[in-house]
Nucleic acid binder design. Structure first.
Lengths: 192, 192
DNA sequence: GAGTATTTGTAGCAGGCGCTACAGTAATGC
DNA sequence: GCATTACTGTAGCGCCTGCTACAAATACTC
């Protein structure tokens, strides 16, 4: 029984790489088996069916992502413009870009109604918003909204500039400027 | 020869509805034929192959969208907060939501590298940015960036809240507030 | 009305899909 | 050593995919 679970975990690791590389297309059982160095027959031995396999790999990826995000940003509160600036630098990196592309795939599937992907996508989204909200140094009432705005702005670039997210840079800079302008205005009204 | 073209146009119209309803899944030739009231054999008579069919329908949809956008917004320049407010109201409507969901589908396919969808998605994106940039009453240097920011913010809600875009409302309101704050600050510095 | 060009139906190919039945091997407990 | 359990290969099911060969029907030209 333990060999099965070990193999299962190993397969999940191997498929994690593959999913980040190629997204949610190219997920035929025979293809996944090839990538994982096994057979389709075995995949359906380790996992109950294809859906369970997908769910396992995707939640594993989500876990890894939130871990690396926490590592990257720490836990001390930051201003919105700083968070966005840092997030944008990350978003342009290859490792992160893979996650974003996969997330977009997921959102697209979820949006077309697939219940499996819907629940996973929602789970990841709320996790991400909560994480960012807790990181933001803004009034409690604005935390969720600011977090959602920052995340949406970055994700939106992916939709707007398929395959070359970096081209959305000017929009991100614009939002950073808006955040800074707001901070300044608040400081002035506070000083008055 | 003319009957063929007529039929082709009719098929495009029928499939437009279907694509807006169901996105880019459910696009098997036999299924599309059923929706269009014909046979798969005939679809491949009207269109060279499936790719050409998809391209034809998608560009037709894109054309219709930009027409209805122009109708909705007119051509007189508007401030960013007004544009975003109006766009958001539209985005929540059913008709528009269908377009957004389809666009998300398209972006996801494009992001995974499919050349067909990539070129169509890019074409639609730049068209949309250009249209909005020309509509914005902001300094020339900021037009594209502001347009991209507004569009990304709305699209981002679709990614962030799959299936229930309206839940991103607070983030949109936040951005509207930022735009208004900026306008006020500019007015003040202009008055000084 | 004969002859040509356009339009359509029938049937099927080669390949992929998720999944399973069955049989065999290998390891484990007693 | 024997029995039970865990593991894995082979083969194939039924269904779907985009697409095509072939032939029949229909429309159009002269």
């Amino acid at each position: 029984m333990s060999k099965k679970l070990d193999k299962r975990a190993e397969v999940i690791d191997l498929l994690t790489v593959h999913f980040l590389d190629t997204g949610l297309s190219d997920t035929g059982l025979r293809r996944l088996a090839e990538v994982a160095g096994t057979s389709d027959r075995m995949l359906l031995y380790y996992f109950e069916n294809k859906d369970e396999l997908l769910a396992a790999v995707l939640t594993h990826i989500a876990g890894g992502l939130s871990a690396s995000l926490t590592q990257l940003f720490g836990t001390t509160p930051l201003s919105p413009d700083t968070v966005l600036e840092k997030l944008w630098v990350a978003a342009k990196s290859d490792a992160f870009k893979s996650h974003l592309r996969l997330w977009l795939d997921l959102a697209a599937h979820a949006n077309r109604g697939d219940p499996l992907f819907l629940s996973i996508a929602q789970q990841i989204s709320t996790g991400w918003i909560n994480w960012m909200a807790s990181l933001l140094d803004v009034p409690e009432a604005n935390k969720d909204a600011t977090a959602a705005l920052i995340l949406a702005a970055v994700d939106g670039q992916l939709v707007l500039f398929p395959g070359e997210i970096a081209r959305g840079e000017y929009a991100i800079l614009q939002l950073i400027a808006l955040f800074r302008g707001q901070t300044k205005a608040q400081a002035q009204s506070g000083a008055a």
